[in-house]
Structures are given as C-alpha cells and as structure tokens.
Design a protein around this nucleic acid. Structure first.
Lengths: 333, 333
DNA sequence: CTGAAAGCGCTAACAT
DNA sequence: ATGTTAGCGCTTTCAG
C-alpha cells in the first residue's frame, strides 16, 4: 500500500489558518471578485504557504461545470491532428478551460473507451475527430452523449448525426483548387493517389479534381490507398513499376503524399523536375529535405479556434443549436 | 447556463434497479471478483441499459488511489517524446491505469501549472521529462510533490533531486559508440553540432565523442546550438559558409540532425556521399526522403516500459526507494 | 461581502 | 457474498 500521502492541504485547513469560513476560501479560488481584496490576499498567501491546490475531484463532483473539454484524435503523430490539438489546448487555456487529450489510435474499441472516460470525467464538451472515414459510421456512444446533453464538435471527419456541431474542410474545393492550379502549370498526365473508397473526404477531393481536369488533361488516373503512408507508398510503387511516371502526382493528404515521395525516390525519379507532386495538406519535413511541393494548405489555427468556440458556445449557452463551419484551404507556393 | 445534463445514471439508480445495495453495485465495477456471478451480470446489464458510467470525480474523491498516472513532455511534436508517451499510455492501459497527458511546450510556467493540475487530479504518480536541460534546474514543485508523497519518474533529462526515480540514456556511451563507429569508417574531419552548453545530455555525448576520437582524426570541431532544429540549422549554415564541408557531421539529437540536413541541402552538399551525417537518435522521415543516416538509436519501448514500471512500483509498494535505470543505445545501419 | 448547512456520488471500514 | 454507516473536499443554496 502507498505509504500515505503527506498531509494534503484542504480548503478547510486553508480557511482555518486564514480565519475565514470554507466557503469564503472556496470563492477566493473560483470567484475571486466576490471576495474582499484584503481577505483574498490573506487566503491566497495562506494557500501558497500550505501548498494548497484545489482538489479537482471534489470540485467536479459538486460543481455544475468541470471547465474541462475532452479532445480525441485518431492519431496524434499525424501533424495535422497533433497540431490542431496543441492549438486547441492553447485556446482553452486562454478561457480557463482544461483539456483532456486522448489518442484513439484509429481503433473503434479505444474510441469507445475514451468517450466513456470523458463522460466519467464530467467534461463539458467533446471535440472529436472520429476514427472512421465512413460517413455512415454510427458510433454507439453518440446516443449516450446526446442523452447526457454533452455537446460534441466533430472535426475534419463528418458523420450523419444531427446533434453534433462540426468543423469541416471544403474538400470539393480542395480538389477544384488543386485542379485549377495543375491546369495553370499545363499538367498533362496526372495520377491521383486517393484515400479509402468509402471516405467522403477522399471522394470529394477526387471529385473536385476530376471536375476541374476532366477533358483538359491528356490523362487522369486515380489510385486508391488509405490515409496512411504505407499503402500509398506500395500502391504508387506498384504503379510506377508498370507505367511511365506522370507529370504530376496528387496526394490526397499528408500521409499519402509522404508515400508518394518515398515511392518516387526509391524509383530514382527526379522529384520537382520531370515528376512533380501536388499535395493536399502540407508534406511533413519536405522543406528540410529540400523539397518545396505545392499544396492546398489549411489554417490549423482557424480550425482549432472554430472548433473550440463551437464547443464553448454550446456549453455556455445551452439553447444554442449545433453549428457547422466549413473551412477553405488555399494553394501555397 | 447549460440546459441541464440529461438525467445521469448513478450507482444508486443502478443499485435500485438491480435490487442490490449501492456498495454491491460499486463492487461490480471495482472488484467484480467479490460479487456473485449472477448478481454481477444483473448489475452489469442494468448499467448497460441505463448507460451508467462510473463518475471519476466521486471515485477519486473517496478512493485511496485514482489509478491515474500523469505524463508530462516538453514537446509532444518531437517524435522521441511523442513516441514515448504513446507507448507509456499503452503500457498503462494493460495494467488498468489511466494516463493524463500534457505538453509543457518547453515553458517553465506551463510546467508549473501542469504539475498543479496533476496534483489536483490526484494522480498516483508523475512521469516527467522536464523542460530544462540544466542539471541544476530546481523546479519549485518538487518539494511539494515530495511532501505529498507523489512519486516522480524523470525521463531523459536528469535533475539533482534524490527522491525521484529516473530513466536515463547513457549519453557518454552514445558518444563513445558514435566515435568508435566513425573511426571504423575512417572519418578524418568531424564536426559535432551539440546542444546547449549547460545541458548535461549534450555535454556527455560530446565528451564521449571526444574521448573516442581525440587524436585519432584530423580534426574534431564542436558547434553549439540548442536542442531545436532552427538554431542547429543556422549554426551549421554559418559554419558551412566559412569552411569546407567535413567528412562527417554528428547531430546530438534528432532535431539538431534535421537542422544539419537542412543546412547541407541548402548548401547543395551531396549528403551520404562526400558529406555524411551521423545522428544520435533517428532522423525523422529520413528514410522517406531517401536518406539512411547511421545513428545511435534507443529502444523507446524499453524506456517507456521502465518508466511506467518504476512509477507503478512506487505506487503499489510505498516503501520502495526511488529507482534509476540507464538505457544504452545501439548503432543502427 | 461573508457564512451555515446540505449533499454531490462514490468507496473504506466495519459488520453480518 | 452482501449490507450499513460515514465521510472524502468541495460548491450550491439560502441567509444574513
């Protein structure tokens, strides 16, 4: 057994030492403006001496709101999600919210368990990028979250649920912009490496590309991978074994683009010379290794801000309806 | 104000519905082996129906242990720390522990606040990679953690505190191994890009290198950067402007190595041909971009496992003394 | 601006 | 194997 926590300072001990009631001491930390400045200072000082820290468990048990937001990502190691999360956490800090951050490892079981955890922690809202790419994915926890009236903000990956807010990327527009840019470059042979076939994100991006390029380029071929590097690499590599390299590859997200890069380099193709890559999302580390690939880039700061604010709005104004924000990317370089 | 949480199932409601006392229901979730199988099943089923989830706040308030470990990193976007954290979280899951993960952004103020948060959440232990590289950094929260008897496991960055466990890398050995390897390659001119001068990690690595190489190579020069990419890049770049490229650069961590890569590529030096790079820690994404740099690599899985287990040992056996583990890397490629 | 009482939901410590 | 009692540390509610 644990050798006993050293005596932990509690509100009671601080209050006693500072000659006030518990509730006044409590207010010194949660609503300082309601406490007389002098009293406040005395309490704060006593707390400092005793090393007092509010007990989150006790507070959350009693208080209406935990001032805590849960954030769930499918893969923190992906700079898109990792970056978003860091920015959201920063945003949260400014408004005095805590964030509980979890990685679902693209696993449905883990996602389920995490949501339960967040419910268990009484989070005020959840910002969630679901694991699935499938529009029709209908996770079992959604009903429960709705009953419990815990607001959910979906990020990037949309679901067919009416009660969730969401921040999405205009994927069709991504494709259109990419396509228009390729036309300006007089691209002739284009090979798109797409995400999974059931992914609406992937589908919309490809649809946009096709709409912009159809009939205006010599050839437009679409390979299907998933949203990870390895499959994209293998698919691209296989394709390169049987075909002559195109003017342009298009990678449908950052991981896919990495796969394309790897395949091209292994095949000793001169990237940025005969063969080019256009990416949707920036290609991680490309600049370091001397590549400057054109891409459609999204403002993570804006996405993070929008997501966090959609969450907060529903927390502080219980009557507000779910909101939806669509963010457009822009071509870089 | 929030439009009221939908009625949340509590232990009381589950107990009533299942015709047992609260405590039996409680045990169904925390010590199921102490409940008759039939009763257990009935309770579980009722809970499922009502969508019951244990209230972590209430549990943590009453229970001796929160079964929760705090993990604090200076920079989750660094694959070394990000990877470690993911592995530790996995490890924790296996043993039924939750992890609360925070990023201190290399900021002392943030680190302080995070530690308070973790105390507030009643974590059983904290696994911490401190922000500072300085051996003599003496964070104010340490005294408090000791008083509260919350075990701390330091990872990677050591401090002069007696009551913390720690998992460290054998940095001197890193340098020695790197040096021996360079000798085998018949390196003649070597330039080391080191971390900050007050960092013992950096100092030990350099010392090891010097011990192995001194007098056995034509020249051995040491540049000082910090542990981030940008400064390393600038320093290397500046040096390259005034000097002829060496046989080998040595990067003292993964971020520094990236900086060296960037500088070399900008200077159009043929990496892996005339100029080579030896890295301590693997160079992120190098393989994708076609580079296979030799490096001293550390087994993150082992570090994660050791750290987590040092933490757990002190939680479950309150009498155990702080432990120290030193992990050795090995040369790859 | 400050306070007294009540109780959030759960589990430790004893019963039985 | 199950139950009873008490209380964790805080904030709500109602009073001054």
């Amino acid at each position: 057994m644990a050798a006993g926590r050293g005596q932990k300072a509690t509100l009671a001990s601080v209050a006693a030492q500072a000659n006030v009631s518990k509730i006044t001491a409590s207010r010194a930390f949660s609503q300082p403006e309601k406490v007389h400045p002098e009293t406040l200072q005395r309490i704060r000082q006593t707390a400092e001496q005793l090393g007092y820290v509010v007990n989150a468990a006790a507070r959350n048990l009693r208080a209406k709101t935990s001032k805590t937001i849960g954030i769930v990502n499918p893969d923190m190691a992906n700079p898109f999600f990792g970056g978003l999360t860091r920015l959201m956490t920063l945003e949260a800090q400014k408004l005095g919210y805590d964030t509980l951050v979890f990685d679902s490892y693209e696993s449905q079981e883990t996602e389920d368990r995490i949501i339960d955890k967040l419910i268990s922690y009484n989070v005020d809202a959840i910002i969630l990028s679901v694991i699935s790419n499938d529009h029709h994915y209908h996770p079992s926890y959604m009903k429960r979250l709705e009953t419990l009236n815990i607001p959910v903000v979906l990020v990037d990956r949309e679901l067919e649920v009416s009660h969730c807010s969401g921040v999405y990327i205009d994927n069709l527009d991504c494709g259109l912009q990419a396509g228009r840019w390729l036309l300006e470059q007089k691209a002739r042979r284009v090979v798109v490496v797409s995400g999974p076939e059931n992914s609406s994100v992937a589908r919309d991006r490809v649809t946009g590309l096709q709409a912009a390029l159809q009939g205006k380029v010599a050839s437009l071929e679409v390979l299907h991978a998933d949203f990870f590097m390895d499959v994209a690499w293998q698919e691209t590599s296989r394709w390169l074994a049987d075909n002559e390299a195109p003017d342009y590859f298009v990678g449908c997200n950052n991981q896919i683009s990495l796969g394309i890069v790897k395949a091209c380099i292994e095949h000793k193709l001169p990237l940025m010379k005969q063969v080019n890559l256009f990416s949707i999302d920036e290609v991680s580390h490309a600049g370091i290794y001397g590549f400057h690939f054109p891409c459609v880039s999204h403002d993570l700061q804006e996405i993070a801000w929008q997501a966090f604010n959609l969450a907060i709005r529903r927390v502080t104004d219980g009557d507000s309806k779910p909101g939806k924000v669509v963010v457009r990317g822009k071509v870089v370089q």
